[in-house]
Amino acid sequence: MRAGRIVAWTVLGLAVLVTVFPFYWMVRTALTDAHHLFSDNFSLWPQHFTWANFKRVLGLSTFAEAQAAGGSGASLDFVLYLRNSVVYTAVVVAVQTLSCAMAGYALARLRFRGREVLFSAFVSALMVPPIFTLLPNFALVRNLGLLNTFAGLVAPILLMTPFTVFFLRQFFLSLPREVEEAAVIDGAGVWGVFWRVALPMSKGPLITIALINGVYAWKDYLWPLLVGQEEGSRVLTVALGVFLQQSPNARPDWTGLMAGSTLSVIPVLLLLLVFGKRLANSLNFTGIK
Results as ranks from 00 to 15, higher is better:
F167S: 05
I185V: 15
V18M: 08
L107E: 07
D220S: 14
V141R: 01
L110M: 15
Q246F: 01
V79P: 04
L44Y: 05
M102E: 04
L240W: 05
N249A: 04
V265W: 03
F166G: 01
I266H: 00
A74M: 06
V11C: 12
V274I: 13
W51K: 02
V265S: 14
G152V: 06
R115G: 10
V154G: 08
G13Q: 14
R111C: 02
L58C: 04
N148M: 08
G59W: 07
L146W: 13
P267I: 10
L17E: 13
G256I: 05
P46G: 04
L211G: 05
L135T: 15
D40N: 13
S61Q: 13
K277P: 02
N41D: 00
L236M: 14
A188L: 14
I131G: 00
V123D: 08
D253N: 07
V265Q: 04
G232S: 12
F285L: 10
L58T: 09
S72L: 08
F166P: 02
F275I: 07
G192R: 07
P224A: 12
N143L: 01
L159M: 15
F275N: 03
A52I: 01
E116Q: 12
D186M: 07
F42A: 07
G71N: 02
G192I: 07
K203Q: 12
Q67I: 07
L147K: 08
K277I: 09
K203H: 04
V7C: 02
V154F: 07
D186K: 09
L175S: 08
D33I: 01
Y105R: 13
T208N: 01
V87G: 02
L107M: 08
T97L: 10
Q170D: 10
I157H: 10
M127N: 05
I212Y: 14
T286A: 13
L279T: 02
V197G: 14
T255F: 01
T97R: 07
A217T: 13
G276E: 10
V215F: 15
F78D: 00
Y216C: 05
Q245I: 03
